[in-house]
C-alpha cells in the first residue's frame, strides 16, 4: 500500500469519525476533526499536484485519463458517501434515544446540522482528489528547488482555524424560536404551550444553547412543567403539581445532539414567578472552542409569559 493510499484511508477514518453516530455529540471536537481533514486534503492535493483542479491544457495524456476516470468514480463515491451519511444520521437518532437517553430533537428545524454540512462539503470537495491519490501509481514529482514553497499551502490550516475562531467571536449570535399553543400537555383549568429556542454562535458552526420548556397558565400564574428542580407554583395544589414528574420531553435544560459539536457548552436554567403571576424562564450558557477558554461567549435565552398566557418576551 502506497503512502497516498494510507493518507486516503486516514482521510476516510477521520471523515467517518465526523459522521459517526456515536458519540452523539462531539463536545467541541468537530472543529479538530475538520482541521485534520483540511490538513489531509492539502497534503493529498499537493501529492496529486492538484490534478483534480487542473486545467486540461497542461496535462499529458496519462494525467488527463487518470483525472477523467477519477471524476467518474468520484460521482459514485459521493453517492455512496451521502448514503452513508443518511444511514449514520438515522443511527445517531437511535443511539441518542437508547444509549444516551436523549429525547428526540425538538424545536426549530435543523435537518442536517453543522457536522453534517462540514462532512458533505468535505466529501464533495475532496472525492476526486482522493480517488486520484488512490489510483496514481506514484506521486507527481515536484522540482527539488520548490520543495519548501510547495508546502506553503499547509498554512491554510492554521489560517482556517484562526478564521473560524474569529467568526465564532465576531459574528452576532442568532436565535431560532418556535412555540405551539396549545401544546402537547393538557391540564385541568389551565392552558399549556410548548416553547423551544436555540441560540447559536458562528452561524451554526460554533456552539448553541437551547431552551425547551412546557408552560401552563391558569389565570393566576404561569409556570413551567416537567422539571421538578424548578420551583413549584403556589396557585397549584402541591399534590397536583407532584403528578407532573421529571419529563425531559416537556422541559429540558440540556443541550441536544448537534448543539455542542463545534463548541463546548455549559448551560443552566432558572424560573421565577413574580407577584403578578408572570413567569420568567431564563437559560444562561457559556460556549467556547475546545482549546482552553479562548474565545468563550456567554449566551442567554429568556421567556416571559403572563398568567393569562401572553408572551411578553421570547428570545
Amino acid at each position: 500500500m502506497s503512502v497516498d493510499q494510507r493518507l486516503v484511508l486516514a482521510l476516510l477514518a477521520v471523515w467517518l469519525l465526523l459522521i459517526a453516530p456515536y458519540p452523539v455529540s462531539l463536545d467541541g471536537w468537530a472543529v479538530t476533526l475538520v482541521l485534520a481533514l483540511l490538513t489531509l486534503d492539502v497534503v493529498l492535493g499537493m501529492r496529486t499536484g492538484w490534478l483534480a483542479f487542473a486545467r486540461g491544457g497542461r496535462l499529458d495524456e496519462r494525467e488527463a485519463a487518470l483525472r477523467d476516470r477519477a471524476f467518474r468514480l468520484a460521482f459514485r463515491l459521493a453517492a455512496l458517501g451521502i448514503a452513508t451519511m443518511l444511514v449514520t444520521g438515522y443511527l445517531s437518532a437511535i443511539v441518542g434515544f437508547f444509549v444516551e437517553h436523549q429525547p428526540s430533537p425538538v424545536g426549530p428545524p435543523n435537518p442536517i446540522g453543522a457536522r453534517g454540512i462540514a462532512a458533505l462539503l468535505e466529501l464533495l470537495a475532496i472525492a476526486p482528489t482522493a480517488v486520484i491519490a488512490w489510483l496514481q501509481p506514484r506521486p507527481v514529482q515536484q522540482p527539488a528547488s520548490s520543495w519548501r514553497l510547495g508546502w506553503l499551502p499547509l498554512l491554510v490550516v492554521p489560517f482556517s482555524a484562526l478564521l473560524w475562531l474569529l467568526a465564532v467571536n465576531a459574528l452576532p449570535p442568532r436565535s431560532a424560536l418556535a412555540h405551539r399553543v396549545p401544546g402537547g400537555l393538557s391540564m385541568a383549568d389551565a392552558t399549556c404551550g410548548d416553547f423551544t429556542a436555540r441560540r447559536e454562535t458562528g452561524f451554526g458552526f460554533g456552539g448553541a444553547i437551547r431552551l425547551q420548556v412546557a408552560v401552563c397558565w391558569n389565570g393566576h400564574q404561569a409556570f413551567a412543567v416537567g422539571d421538578t428542580t424548578l420551583p413549584a407554583p403556589a396557585s397549584l395544589p402541591a399534590e397536583e403539581y407532584a403528578g407532573f414528574r421529571m419529563d425531559p420531553g416537556l422541559t429540558n435544560c440540556r443541550p441536544q445532539s448537534g448543539d455542542s459539536d463545534f463548541g463546548r457548552i455549559t448551560q443552566g436554567c432558572t424560573e421565577t414567578i413574580d407577584q403578578d403571576g408572570t413567569m420568567h424562564y431564563q437559560v444562561r450558557g457559556r460556549v467556547w472552542p475546545a482549546a482552553g477558554g479562548l474565545g468563550a461567549r456567554d449566551l442567554r435565552l429568556e421567556l416571559t409569559v403572563t398568567r393569562d398566557g401572553r408572551i411578553v418576551n421570547f428570545g
Binding site: P108, L120, L121, L124, R174, S175
Partner: peptide, 27 residues
Amino acid sequence: YAVFALAIGGSVLIAYVWSPDSRAWMA
C-alpha cells in the same frame, strides 16, 4: 461533478447559514 457539488453543497450551505427561516425551509 462540478455542477453537482456546487448545486448540492452550495444550496445546503447557504440555506444553513443564511437564517433560521432558510434552515426551516430546507427541512
